[in-house]
Design a protein around this nucleic acid. Structure first.
Lengths: 193, 193
DNA sequence: ACCGTAACACTAACCGTTAGGTTTTCCTGC
DNA sequence: GCAGGAAAACCTAACGGTTAGTGTTACGGT
């Protein structure tokens, strides 16, 4: 019943980090496709089954750090100031996420992802999961009062903005441009007063 | 150089169709995951390598018939009447596609896809490919005069509409609702006259 | 009739992933 | 402290999708 506090959790987290770090290092050194799971496990000095007990798939090793992103969009909705409109809050968060991903330090990882169809596909489906949780957060806000379909649509549009802006020549300008479209799409669904 | 006319092509097409038909039949009979590629090959009386010379992956066997869909959205743009506005033309095409997929005859296939994460993921990434060709078609129309980012964004929104409407309780109404949003998003990008 | 090539076959492997069952390591209540 | 239980990690072995390598056939153009 007591909350497990201590060494066990620390060791588990250490193993997880060691696997992820080793994997990312090998992937960047020699290419994602050129490094096998057995090799990652050997280099991290763990069993293959241990790798898969920490990560659901080989692709998940690459996106380990981005797990927090899942919640950030939803929190941008639920934690926004009581009187702040929805769209600017989302715009701000998407802009922050885009800047984080297009920062110089992330360039090698982004190049690796772009080079691997498997990683691109994984990221795409990850974004759709994020859209679902964002849609749930939007639908849960009673101040917004939209149908389920509108909430899901908005969520898709927002994650599209994230994906498209990252690939654009000028990410900041792209966020601006796309969010003008999203704002218009959202306004037209306002319930009649 | 000469245009290949004849038996060779017919035999190849026949082999391809035999593989696809056999695979779909087995998948529907016993489930996508429960049928292996080796089994499909044996039942179609071809070698495993032959299956993969016709289809890039196991998932592609399921979506063989939907290959034409790739072009339909783009054609809805390029082949529309000279004075027809873009959005209604796209709305009409998406509605037709949604109705086609939610027709009674397609129900078992849709259920199979919904039951397999691998198939859902494959379809998601297929949609993104479709969005890219749609974006290219929109960008190529000089009468529209929008930036590349706007064209890509619109294309994403349109394929989102397709995906969301299919899952909605009332697909027709969802297409209506979502395309009102798309229309507004598109209008706000109109170049100043 | 003959050659090039496209289609197909067979074998054998590689790689991600999982199941099975065992050992180690830590937490906890005595 | 220590027994008992559980979580974490291990090892082995396999399964299923996918591909490389190497032939073999059958068609099409000359």
């Amino acid at each position: 019943m007591t909350v497990p506090t201590g060494r066990r959790e620390r060791k588990k987290a250490a193993t997880r980090r060691k696997i992820a770090d080793t994997a990312l290092r090998l992937f960047l050194e020699r290419g994602y496709d050129a490094v096998g799971i057995r090799e990652v496990a050997a280099e991290a000095d763990v069993a293959v089954t241990t790798v898969f007990s920490h990560f659901a798939s080989k692709e998940a090793l690459v996106f380990e750090q981005d797990e927090g992103f899942e919640q950030r969009l939803a929190q941008a909705v639920t934690n926004r100031a009581p009187d702040e409109p929805l769209i600017p809050a989302l715009r701000r968060e998407v802009l922050a996420l885009v800047r984080h991903c297009t920062a110089d330090g992330a360039a090698p990882i982004q190049r690796m992802i772009a080079a691997s169809p498997a990683l691109r596909q994984y990221e795409d489906s990850m974004r759709l999961r994020h859209a679902e949780s964002l849609a749930a957060a939007v639908a849960a806000d009673p101040a917004l009062a939209r149908t389920g379909t509108v909430c899901r649509t908005l969520a898709r549009f927002v994650v599209d903005a994230y994906a498209l802006a990252r690939e654009a020549d000028d990410p900041d300008a792209a966020v601006d441009e796309i969010f003008r479209m999203i704002e218009a799409a959202w306004e037209v669904t306002a319930p009649s007063r």
